[in-house]
Amino acid sequence: MALRKFINFNTFNIIRPFCFKSAISLENLYPNKSLKIFTPQQTVEQSTGGFTGHIPIEKLQITYSRSSGPGGQNVNTLNSKVDLRFHVESADWLSSEVRAKLMEMNKTKISKEGFLILRSEKTRSQQLNVADIMQKLRAIIRAAEAEPEPISEESEERARKRKLKAARLRLQEKRNRSFTKSQRQAPVDF
């Protein structure tokens, strides 16, 4: 208590940040860097190299609703579930090949109007669910953009042998089942 009388709190607040720095402070982890935390405005041009990861938010329809499942009163008061609707055909920032492949790969998730519908209620935070759903959309677009790997001759041969073996087993089981059923029937006298 006695020490408190002699400390000028205005000077203490100025000196305090310089008293102790943790080994894992931002200044030590990233020396000579500006530590201002902000989200820069991105102006991404359409590149010929493919999908850059930038998704224009204005081209998406994002709605929020109440999540289901456990969460107590938080579930009843906050709109944390995120529904994303993305019109694939009008996505001029994607190439036509990627759009066609997106439509082919995700036919069950596309509505009659042509909207790709994704939902996220993974967390109880609206912002984290938006981040999760954007990550899902990026993964879907990158999967559609990726070139399929060529199948080697060994893999083709293994697949052919598996199919032949499966067909043989199926026919053998069919014969066994037929024999079992024929043994159950009463003998026929002529």
Rank of each mutant, 00 (worst) to 15 (best):
H87F: 13
A146F: 03
A91I: 11
T63R: 13
R177M: 12
E147Y: 02
A139C: 08
K163P: 01
V44E: 10
S155L: 13
R16K: 15
F179D: 06
K81W: 00
E27K: 14
D132H: 11
E145L: 08
S120N: 10
L137T: 01
S80T: 15
L3A: 06
K122S: 07
I110N: 08
I117R: 13
F115A: 04
S80P: 01
N79Q: 11
K163I: 10
R160L: 12
T39D: 04
P40L: 07
S120A: 14
F190M: 10
F179A: 14
F20A: 10
P70T: 04
V75L: 08
A100S: 14
G69H: 05
E173H: 13
N76K: 14
Q185D: 04
E153P: 02
L128R: 14
L116C: 08
R175T: 04
V82W: 01
A91L: 08
I15R: 09
I14E: 09
R162D: 04
A131P: 00
Q135I: 01
F38H: 14
K136A: 09
M103N: 10
N74S: 11
I62G: 06
A2Y: 01
K101D: 01
P70H: 10
A143Y: 00
C19K: 10
T63S: 14
G69A: 12
K5V: 05
R99D: 00
A167F: 04
S182D: 05
S152I: 03
E154K: 12
T180K: 15
F86I: 12
E89A: 13
E113M: 09
S120R: 07
K174D: 00
L164F: 06
K181Q: 11
H87V: 09
E153C: 02
L164I: 12
V88L: 14
L26V: 05
E89P: 00
K81C: 09
L118S: 06
F86D: 03
I37V: 14
I57F: 09
F18K: 15
I37R: 15
K59R: 12
E156S: 10
P70C: 14
K107F: 04
R99L: 12
N79S: 07
V44M: 13
P31E: 04
R124K: 12
I62H: 02
N10H: 06
K101Y: 02
V188P: 00
